[in-house]
Amino acid sequence: MPDADYRIYALAGMALFAIGFYSMLVQAHLLRRIMALNVMGSGVFLVYIALGAQTPGPIPDPVPHAMVLTGIVVSVCATGLALALVDRAQAAASEVEPGDDA
């Protein structure tokens, strides 16, 4: 571990983040946009892990690892919430004619 350079993974994480950001803005389909958010999230987690691997010491820094575990759980919850919301909104949209909002 000591001398290896893992920054390429951090750069890859940043690339994932930018790709996800682009897709989230240009995609029209809501499912694709949720997937884009997940790609952004994976990018962030990869950056954390790569930076944790850069620290000196016998093992990689455990603090970013724990943070990523927290982040993954939060992102699973976010995905579940977003999917349920999309489904509910589309069900409501099919019941109501456009422009007929209460």
Binding site: D5, R7, A10, L11, M14, V47, L51, G52, Q54, T55, P56, G57, P58, I59, P60, D61, P62, V63
Partner: peptide, 12 residues
């Protein structure tokens, strides 16, 4: 990323 310290202090 490239301007970060090569060996960040961290909390290991």
């Amino acid at each position: 990323v490239l301007s970060l310290p090569l060996r960040p202090a961290g909390l290991t």
